[in-house]
Nucleic acid binder design. Sequence first.
DNA 1: TCATCTAAATCATCAGATTAATTCTATTCT
DNA 2: AGAATAGAATTAATCTGATGATTTAGATGA
Lengths: 248, 248
Amino acid sequence: MLRGIESDLLEYIIENGLRTGDRLPPLEELSAELQISIGKLREQLEVARALGFVEVKPRTGIRVSPFSFLPAVRFSLLYALAQDRKLFDAFSDLRNHVEFAFFREAVALLTDEDLDHLQSLVERAFAKLEDHPPRIPHDEHRELHLTIYRRLDNPFVKGLLEAYWDAYEAEGLSVFSDYDYLHEVWTYHERIVNAIVGGDVNEAYALLVQHTKLLQKRPQARTTRGRVNGDAATMDERTLALQQVVPS
Amino acid sequence: MLRGIESDLLEYIIENGLRTGDRLPPLEELSAELQISIGKLREQLEVARALGFVEVKPRTGIRVSPFSFLPAVRFSLLYALAQDRKLFDAFSDLRNHVEFAFFREAVALLTDEDLDHLQSLVERAFAKLEDHPPRIPHDEHRELHLTIYRRLDNPFVKGLLEAYWDAYEAEGLSVFSDYDYLHEVWTYHERIVNAIVGGDVNEAYALLVQHTKLLQKRPQARTTRGRVNGDAATMDERTLALQQVVPS
DNA sequence: TCATCTAAATCATCAGATTAATTCTATTCT
DNA sequence: AGAATAGAATTAATCTGATGATTTAGATGA
């Protein structure tokens, strides 16, 4: 049990069969019971908290959280990216392969409500793009992708896909896209959703793959530090407008 | 920089551009410089240590480790499995898809030495299986798979694949396999390696997929607590022998 | 019923002291 | 000179006790 992990705190949770929502004893009690100081206990607690295993608040105490792969992946990923931004492409590559690999299975599980939701996301995205001034439909982008995989009963796949978007945001890519690119992406999204709704999974898959290639050759309008380096004079009006707003 | 992660310690590493092997100041100094107590610093240090970002020893101090995705994945995965063993199948499914998705690319990068190594692993595995008493070639199994993906320049893919084997061992599966199954698996391995060496990647890929299906319908000779529940009377001699030795 | 205040529980943080582990260094022995 | 050993210095590891901050629950009053 828990071989390879040294944590009296987590061991306590496992050995006592604590489940999501269950409360742990106060640190002082735990300290007495586990025979280790509060200081050491807090070191382990911080790890458990960073990885999303427990939620800890004053007065409320320590509660077991539902398992999610996301915090661990995100923590490691964001640290890696802070050291070397080139690793974003590596993770991106993994994410793309995972999306491809689970696409058919995921689509097969979508409910009617999910399909409606996908369509409304496409609508909202185009509304933002065609607004004056145009806005970047970043939240819609994230949610569209994650919605497709929502019904997969695999926390590890989900965690990876979710972490991608956190990394995407950390990289600042969302802010630095040009208008034509975004429009083309969303045209693909629209066609993917239509294919899914129409029951043509093969077509949807093919479009997904194509749309990913689009991202790979996206305009590299940024320096290594995430600042825009495009010459403003060469940008079209709508792209310029996009760069002046925070994505919403 | 490091948005979404709250850790003065990691921030220090990033902001000061510390690289693999670099040393951090002693905790007392850090405490003074970062204006936080040693106790709090140690909480963050424990997280960084658990995720493999730093190595910390008395007298030597704190050193930055090369980045690896493995510790974060393993930690989260092992905790998850300790709570619910069924999650092994979920991670296994992810791992299989990732192996499939990166197989061709990985094989294309293998060197001649790698191919030699693969062949020697197959030889060693059969030698163990045909020994008296037979031994489980678990290390060879792990290394064969990881060797195939060794040249991939993607720490995230590598971390996932490595973590699988830690989980595999934690599940105790390695100890509870029957002889015929193992022999069949290694026959596949042999054919996969031969196909790779022969340059027939498509054949190798097809065999890989087949061999994975073999694992999915493996004999479930264990209870929920990892103990053998097979009736000894129904086992053949060689399988019985396997169960009495620790894999080596 | 609602809002506000009060008190208790619990985590959060800190400072200091002691202990243990590791590495370096100097000494001693062969 | 070289190897083994003993000791010293550095640093993390752990514990203790004290104080502060936050959240919740309950009491109080309009």
